[in-house]
């Protein structure tokens, strides 16, 4: 049905959508992360090391997500008390620490990476995971937890005065985002079949962040559109050759000027 080019494009698009979701969830609680590449690495390595030991793929993916979530919560517990720019710096530092850690982990291949990972990721697997995560995020809006997350984003003081546990809500949002990045990492590892620490560095984290800025963070469709534009547009614009990235830069600047809330999913203005 697909030739291998379209298929791989679709798979990487799906993985990017998951990375966008992983930024979107914490951002709806007001937590901006520039370290999602680190959680992706944790999910990728954990699941790849497990499938190498013949653990079933689904189980390995879940384990990668769980380890990423756990580390996410541990990292976030001290960091979410601080807000804004400081949290961004903390997550940025985290991403770098993970990269350097994997460079030094001999059993994970060190700087030369892990190769010979089994090809277990199929397009339908990616589509399934994307739909599952997307539906969960969509459903969140009408759940107690989802409203609590939005309330925390809007006004921490009022939220706390209305009985919302600030720390717990933020940790769930941040840990959930880390888990989604871990899933993305697991799917990536078993499609790329080779991983090394550099694949999950700052540019990966920044890209994931860009998806959400571009698409908008008002609802889960925003990150999907953002990921679509960044992943697919460069392919469509191949005819522009060397001017491709310049066109892209212009698009971004235009976006910042005319649609600062994102292409499709702007948050309503946050003031009464």
């Amino acid at each position: 049905m697909f030739n291998s080019y379209t298929e791989s494009l679709a798979v990487f698009f799906g993985i990017n959508v998951l990375m966008a979701f992983s930024v979107y969830l914490p951002s709806s609680a007001g937590l901006i992360s520039l370290g999602q590449g680190g959680f992706m690495a944790i999910g990728a390595y954990t699941s790849a090391l497990l499938t190498a030991k013949d653990v079933p793929f689904a189980l390995a993916l879940a384990a990668g997500a769980a380890v990423a979530a756990l580390i996410g919560v541990l990292v976030a517990a001290p960091a979410v008390r601080i807000r804004g720019i400081y949290l961004i710096i903390a997550t940025l530092g985290f991403g770098e620490i993970v990269r350097i850690l994997f460079i030094n982990l001999e059993f994970a291949g060190g700087a030369s990476g892990l190769s010979g990972i089994r090809p277990l990721t199929t397009l339908w697997y990616v589509v399934g995971v994307c739909f599952f995560v997307g539906l969960c995020l969509w459903r969140l809006r009408t759940l107690t937890l989802g409203r609590a997350i939005l309330a925390v984003h809007e006004d921490e003081t009022a939220a706390e005065a209305m009985g919302i546990k600030l720390l717990q809500t933020k940790l769930i949002a941040f840990g959930g985002g880390a888990a989604i990045a871990g899933l993305a990492g697991g799917l990536f590892a078993h499609y790329a079949l080779f991983i090394d620490p550099e694949q999950f560095g700052f540019s990966r984290s920044a890209e994931a962040f860009l998806f959400v800025v571009l698409g908008g963070s008002g609802n889960p469709l925003g990150p999907v559109i953002g990921a679509a534009v960044v992943t697919l547009l460069p392919e469509v614009l191949r005819f522009l050759q060397d001017w491709r990235m310049s066109f892209f830069a212009v698009l971004l600047i235009g976006c910042a000027i005319w649609r600062p809330g994102g292409l499709v999913a702007a948050r309503p203005p946050s003031r009464l």
Binding site: R147, A151, E154, D155, M162, G163, L272
Partner: peptide
Amino acid sequence: RLFPVLSVIENVMVGCHSRLPRT
């Protein structure tokens, strides 16, 4: 200090949170 992105009814629903069972 209402929550601007939530609707009127959702704002009041946030008030119920502490008394609701788990989903």
